[in-house]
Amino acid sequence: MTTYHLTVKNESNEDWDIFTFQKNPILNLNSPALVSLAWFTKYTAAHSQCKFKWDLEYNFMWSETGNLTPGVVFDASQSFLADPFATGLATAANAGDQAVLSYNAEQEYFEFNNEGPLVTNPSPGTLYIACDSSVPNGVASVGIGMSNAGTFALPALTNITAEFTPDPTYYVAANVSIQQGQVLEEEISNAVELQFAGVTSLTATFNPDHTWSVTKS
């Protein structure tokens, strides 16, 4: 499996929270409620550097977030391996293209179930999370991650199946205060796209004028 590497050099005169995130225009068009999450974050002092790495291993996730508004943190309570080109239900031991979220009202907990309603004709390349009839509205969120860190989320709604078609574009940005899993604003002003065109390692430099330069490592 290919591993991607990103080195970020903070050449500004301030300390920053450096964070990566993903965008997916297809998902944003098909799912207006979809939000991007702060994927990986590292506090980085002025004139220092940090490193990130990941591979293309996907995950199903859920979190008790309440409403998915900017600033809310999606802190995954459970993570199953996901494979958009597999067939069947994901479990704790095996990847699949579908997962089922249930809620135990008596004990007040959510969990991915080992059985439940499945999409009968799934599209190859798409991941599905079915929220069954026990899931209350407005309490939890479901999402997908990469390298076991959340990237996208949607509200968990009663008897609704959330769909995710991974085709990510990668970005890095700087912020004065941000947490991993935090729901991002729709537009991030201080960001640059990371284009791994034929390479697996990039260096992004945050310049003194707060612009970005990206080069092959």
Rank of each mutant, 00 (worst) to 15 (best):
M1Q: 09
M1V: 14
T2Q: 13
T2I: 08
T2V: 11
L6G: 07
L6S: 05
T7N: 10
V8T: 06
V8W: 07
N10T: 09
D15K: 02
W16G: 09
K23Y: 00
K23D: 06
P32T: 04
L34Q: 12
A38V: 04
T41G: 01
K42I: 12
T44I: 11
A45I: 03
A45M: 06
Q49E: 15
C50N: 14
F52Y: 15
F52D: 10
K53S: 04
L56Q: 06
N59Y: 09
T65W: 00
N67T: 13
F74D: 13
A76Q: 15
A76L: 01
S77L: 12
Q78F: 06
A82Y: 05
A82L: 12
A82E: 13
F85A: 01
A90H: 03
A92Y: 03
A93G: 02
A93Y: 12
N94R: 01
A95E: 14
G96P: 02
G96L: 11
A99Q: 08
L101E: 07
L101C: 10
L101F: 00
Y103H: 12
N104I: 04
E106Q: 10
E106M: 06
E106S: 13
E108S: 06
F110T: 03
E111R: 06
E111S: 13
N114D: 15
N114K: 11
G116E: 01
P117A: 00
V119M: 04
V119P: 08
T126S: 13
I129L: 04
A130V: 01
S134A: 04
V135G: 08
N137I: 05
G145D: 13
M146R: 15
M146L: 14
M146A: 10
S147W: 02
S147N: 13
F152M: 15
F152Y: 14
F152D: 11
L154G: 00
P155L: 05
A156W: 09
L157P: 05
I160N: 00
T161E: 05
T165P: 01
P166G: 02
P166H: 12
P168D: 09
T169G: 03
Y170D: 14
Y170M: 06
A173Q: 05
S177G: 09
Q179F: 02
Q180S: 14
V183G: 00
E185L: 14
Q195V: 13
A197T: 15
V199C: 08
S201F: 10
L202I: 04
L202Q: 00
T211A: 09
K216Y: 07
S217T: 07
